[in-house]
């Protein structure tokens, strides 16, 4: 009997549009899925097919965008683009090709907690019957994993927040949340890369730019990175913001 390799991910592929297919790795949020998606993403970038454009990794999926005109002209077996690409991706997964591991970087994000930067910190601490320093300690004591970038440019979905900080969204969203605001919504924590309206509980702000359209890599974070929050005071915030 054949034994199933533990390292080889199993997946299914579905149609998203004429220009994209989605690979489904299994509907759950788990670090081993993130690794499988990151590895396959790296492998695909090292072995692209004719007409490959780009990918979008998410919690449990990797979506592959392509140019149908180039794909249909390619020698890949299959009548249409969907068959050609599905076949290619399935083969690539079955081959024992090793991808050069992309190592996620650890990014430290300095945060000035509370005050005008974190208008919801006090209420959130009160709700959980914690002191403000406890909230900050709980928020800064975890190494967070970036599961995906989505929602707005540069917004990172972080996993593994301490459950004691889980807080529902605000009943009425704020019309304006400044860029760099650090918030909590349900089980999630994250940083607003742009000034947008939003319903998250805002506990602090970072002077770092999470998204900069003038940079070659505009998003500070990418899927697979680790994030650590570090508390700073107002003076340090201002220094970092002006530097």
């Amino acid at each position: 009997m054949a034994t199933q390799s533990l390292t080889k991910p199993t997946f299914s592929i579905y149609y998203l549009s004429e220009r994209a297919v989605t690979i489904d790795f299994g509907q759950q949020i788990a670090e081993h899925l993130l690794d499988a998606i990151s590895d396959f993403n790296a492998l695909l970038h090292q072995h692209p097919f004719a007409g490959f454009c780009t990918t979008v990794p998410a919690y449990a999926t990797l979506t592959v965008f392509f140019d149908p005109l180039a794909v249909i002209k390619s020698a890949m077996p299959g009548a249409g683009c969907f068959e050609k690409i599905s076949g290619y991706l399935t083969n690539l997964n079955q081959q024992k090709k090793k991808s050069i591991k992309t190592i996620g970087t650890t990014v430290t994000i300095p945060v000035c907690y509370g005050g005008a930067f974190g208008p919801d910190l006090e209420e959130l601490a009160h709700l959980h019957q914690l002191g403000i320093t406890d909230v900050v300690k709980l928020h800064t004591s975890v190494i967070y994993t970036v599961y995906m970038i989505g929602f707005v440019p540069g917004f990172a979905y972080l996993g593994d927040m301490d459950e004691r900080l889980a807080t529902p969204r605000k009943a009425a969203p704020r019309p304006v949340i400044p860029a760099g605001s650090v918030g909590i919504a349900g089980q999630q924590t994250g940083v607003y890369p742009l000034q947008t309206p939003g319903g998250w509980q805002i506990i602090g702000q970072t002077p770092l730019k999470l998204f900069d359209a003038t940079k070659l890599q505009p998003s500070l974070l990418k899927a697979g990175d680790k994030v650590v929050f570090k508390p700073i005071n107002l003076k340090e915030f201002n220094q970092l913001a002006s530097g």
Binding site: C53, T54, T55, P57, F65, I149, G150, P153, P218, S219
Partner: peptide
């Protein structure tokens, strides 16, 4: 379409 993975 080259920055979709950064949510652009």
């Amino acid at each position: 379409d080259l920055y979709l993975s950064q949510a652009v």
